[in-house]
Amino acid sequence: MRAQTCLDEQLLLFMDQLEALEEKRHKLNSLIEEGWFSIAKARYSMGNKQVSALQYASEMEPLVYVEDSLLERGTVEFVCKRAESKSEELKSNIEDIGAKEGGLRRRINTKQKETKVEDASDTQQETELQEKTKTESPTPENRDPLKWFGILVPQNLKQAQAAFKEVITVSAEIASLQSAILATRKEMQAQMKEKQDSVGETKLETLKE
């Protein structure tokens, strides 16, 4: 009786998950259609050549990445997170070098010549990192893909960006839900097999009697 109750609960959970998956997929399709329709409107107002791959940046840096984590039931959860920009990482490296410079100066105050040489070396290293930050790391404005198409972009292009941003989040939710559905189905199959084995043993004992 208890096994039957657990199986019924798993079945109800499985049906709820399938319903939620269907809703998420419908939302995903709607967002994709909305995004492409908004891009088509932007191309109509700005011109086909103004909204195309020709405007893409020569070097692209992802703004979002997907992190996966393994849960207790063996399911995998996918979460979207914003990536840290390279400029922030280089800024942290520059601060570390600055702190290192102070420590070196305090330790070698008795040797003036060596201090000057190492100070010059550290200053040069810091300057190189600052130049690298300016040349290689894009500013927050340039990291926004909308800036590739001009300063004053139409509202349709902004709506397309918002739709595709949500597509990434919904896709991660769908992947997590699919993993949960596979785990639930596996548990149901194991419980059904256990129930069948139990019923078979009961029939066998009855025949023996």
Rank of each mutant, 00 (worst) to 15 (best):
Q4C: 14
C6M: 14
L7H: 12
F14R: 15
F14G: 13
F14D: 15
D16Y: 03
L18G: 11
E19M: 10
A20Y: 07
E23H: 08
K27N: 04
K27H: 07
N29A: 01
S30D: 00
S30M: 01
S30L: 02
I32M: 04
E34I: 08
E34S: 06
G35N: 07
F37V: 02
F37E: 05
S38H: 02
I39N: 09
I39A: 06
A40L: 04
K41V: 02
Y44S: 00
Y44I: 00
S45L: 01
M46I: 06
G47I: 09
N48C: 10
A53K: 02
A57L: 10
S58E: 13
S58G: 03
E59W: 12
M60A: 11
E61H: 11
E61M: 12
E61F: 15
L63N: 10
E67R: 12
L70D: 01
L70I: 05
L70H: 00
E72D: 15
R73S: 15
V76I: 13
V76R: 08
E77F: 00
V79E: 11
V79T: 14
C80M: 05
A83H: 07
E84R: 09
E84W: 02
E84I: 02
K86R: 08
S87T: 04
E89T: 12
E89K: 12
L90S: 12
L90D: 03
K91R: 14
K91Q: 13
S92E: 11
S92M: 09
N93R: 15
E95N: 10
A99C: 09
K100N: 10
G102A: 07
G103S: 08
L104P: 08
L104Q: 03
R107L: 06
I108V: 10
K111E: 12
Q112C: 01
Q112H: 14
E114N: 14
E114Q: 15
E114M: 14
V117F: 12
E118W: 14
E118F: 14
E118Y: 15
E118C: 11
E118G: 01
D119T: 13
D119R: 09
T123H: 00
T123F: 02
T123N: 09
Q125T: 10
E126P: 06
K132V: 08
K132C: 04
T133C: 11
T135Q: 11
T135G: 00
S137P: 03
E141P: 02
E141G: 02
R143S: 13
K147V: 12
W148H: 11
F149R: 10
G150W: 03
P154E: 06
N156M: 07
L157W: 04
L157E: 05
Q161Y: 13
A162L: 01
A163S: 10
K165T: 05
K165A: 05
E166S: 06
E166H: 09
V170K: 04
S171E: 11
S171V: 00
A175W: 11
S179L: 10
A183Q: 13
R185V: 12
K186W: 06
Q189L: 00
Q191K: 09
M192W: 01
K193G: 02
K193P: 03
K193E: 06
E194I: 07
K195Q: 12
K195H: 03
D197W: 06
D197S: 03
S198M: 10
G200C: 00
E201H: 01
T202K: 15
T202F: 09
E209H: 15
